[in-house]
Simulated scan of single mutants.
Amino acid sequence: MTIHTYADLPLVDRAAFELACARHGFAPIHFNVSGEADPDDPEHGELLIVRRGAWAQAYRIDARGQWLRQFETDLNGRFFSRAPYA
């Protein structure tokens, strides 16, 4: 599956992403979400890149939804709060 925007995420992941954003005072529109092949291992997976302003984080997409837990950990750590909305 190719991900160009957050709307391309599987429905369950999209709903979880929206809830994580809302719990931390964000909306999905505050983030730029895209997918790209893992440059270190292009045959075994895609990375989900989440950007806000000058800050970006890459998450490996897996069937267990681990990227969502990592994204929420970054929100809890205020990683994306350092960047103004852009």
Rank of each mutant, 00 (worst) to 15 (best):
R69V: 07
M1K: 04
E36L: 05
A56C: 13
H24A: 09
Q57A: 14
A54R: 14
L9P: 02
L19N: 10
Q70A: 12
Q66D: 14
R64I: 01
P39N: 06
G65T: 03
V33I: 15
H4T: 15
I61R: 05
P10L: 05
W55D: 11
D62E: 09
S81M: 10
A37K: 09
Q57C: 11
V33F: 13
F26S: 02
A15C: 11
L47F: 01
N76M: 11
W67H: 11
R64P: 01
L11K: 02
R82P: 10
G65Y: 03
R14N: 01
E46V: 13
A56M: 14
A16L: 04
A16Y: 04
R82T: 15
T2M: 10
D74T: 02
I61G: 05
R78V: 03
V12C: 08
D41R: 10
G25A: 12
D8P: 07
R82I: 11
D41A: 15
V50H: 02
G45Y: 01
A20W: 00
A7V: 15
T5I: 08
I3N: 00
P84E: 07
A22K: 07
G53L: 05
C21M: 01
L68W: 12
A7R: 14
L47Q: 02
L9W: 03
F17Q: 00
I49F: 12
T2F: 09
Q70T: 07
E18Q: 14
R52Q: 02
H24L: 07
R78K: 06
Q66W: 10
I29C: 07
A58M: 00
S34Y: 12
